[in-house]
Simulated assay, not measured.
Amino acid sequence: MIIGSTTEQSSSYDNLEEMSVHELLLNMNSEDKKVALAVEKSIVQIEPLVNEIVKKFKQGGRLFYIGAGTSGRLGVLDASECPPTYGVPDNWVIGLIAGGDGALRKAVENAEDDLEQAWLDLKTYDINSKDVLIGIAASGRTPYVIGGLREANKHKIITGCITCNAGSEVAKEAKFPVEVVVGPEFVTGSTRMKSGTAQKLALNMISTSVMVKLGRVKGNKMVDMQLSNEKLVERGTNMVASELGVEKQLAEELLLKYKSVRAAVDQYRKLHK
């Protein structure tokens, strides 16, 4: 066990192989219930980070995530979901994983141990002082993430992090650290479990809050979502029909013509003043 590392502490449960399936599921669920409460305690750290991201976006900046393993995959996932959900350009939120995109499916040996590689990866995107960089590392000691944050600080780039250990090296490098301490994992050291869930929740909160504050949500609707499948066209049609008080057939025609809920509603209202 690594001294001071909560994520490496021994599980509160033992002899897992002797548990029934019901016991396994019940005990994992009991541990998972602790995650949202841990995230709640971190809201005081998440809020100022969100405010900085919104400020930088309004100045023409972008948001970058870096991480390794599960943490890296979660960053890439959050970044990849922003364009279809909020209709933003692909380069607004960028997720990078140690070892490159191939590491999304298969672990790349020693990729996370390189202190210099994250900055090399970030430089290919011309990262600059208008941008924000968030390092994601459950352990808080991933060299790939530490090195990236360190170099970003040198270049006057706003830095944040999401980690699941208190007082970690990653948190020390980040100007806006978010520490979600969820306690020992059900399977000792398996941070894809509670830690991964905590990181996903924090990422959801960060990107969603940012997009709302940037006007990409109206009321509670995703008015700029990409119409990439029949389900989303149906959802968008219902939104247009509800907002304008028109029949679904007309709503769908407007939606398909103008390509987004926002545009369909705005253009219809302009024509019917």
Rank of each mutant, 00 (worst) to 15 (best):
K259W: 06
G75E: 01
E52Y: 03
K34N: 13
L232R: 08
A137G: 04
A166E: 14
N204S: 09
E252F: 06
A111L: 09
I134S: 02
L49V: 08
E169M: 13
I43R: 12
L77F: 13
G95W: 04
I66W: 08
E109K: 13
D90N: 14
K172P: 00
E47K: 15
E81Y: 08
L26A: 11
K257G: 00
K106G: 00
K257C: 01
R141A: 12
T237L: 10
Y125V: 05
Y258W: 15
H272N: 15
A36D: 02
S209F: 00
Y144V: 03
N110D: 14
V39I: 14
L122G: 02
N27L: 12
K218V: 08
Q9T: 07
E47D: 12
V35R: 06
V210G: 03
G189A: 11
P84K: 07
M28R: 13
G196W: 13
C161A: 15
A111G: 09
P89R: 10
K200A: 02
S10D: 05
I94P: 07
L254E: 10
S228G: 07
V21E: 03
F64A: 01
I206M: 10
K273Y: 01
N238Q: 11
A36Q: 10
G189K: 09
K270A: 10
G99N: 10
N229S: 11
D113C: 08
E169A: 13
G60H: 09
N110K: 15
V246R: 00
L122W: 05
A202Q: 01
R216M: 13
N15E: 14
N91I: 02
D101T: 14
L256T: 10
E23V: 09
T7R: 04
F64W: 09
R262F: 05
P177C: 09
V170A: 04
E234N: 14
G219S: 09
K213F: 03
V233K: 12
G67E: 02
L271H: 09
G148C: 07
N29E: 14
Y258K: 12
T197H: 04
L255S: 02
R235P: 01
I157M: 04
V145E: 05
I158Y: 01
G67Y: 04
L201H: 11
E116P: 00
E179H: 07
R62K: 15
N153D: 04
A202Y: 01
M1I: 10
S30K: 15
V178I: 15
V246C: 13
L122E: 03
E18G: 13
I46Y: 02
V132Y: 08
P83Y: 08
S207D: 03
F176R: 03
L104I: 15
M222G: 00
V88A: 06
T191I: 15
N220S: 13
V210F: 12
F176P: 00
K34S: 04
L255E: 03
I206K: 11
Q267N: 15
T237F: 12
L49E: 02
E173D: 05
L203H: 05
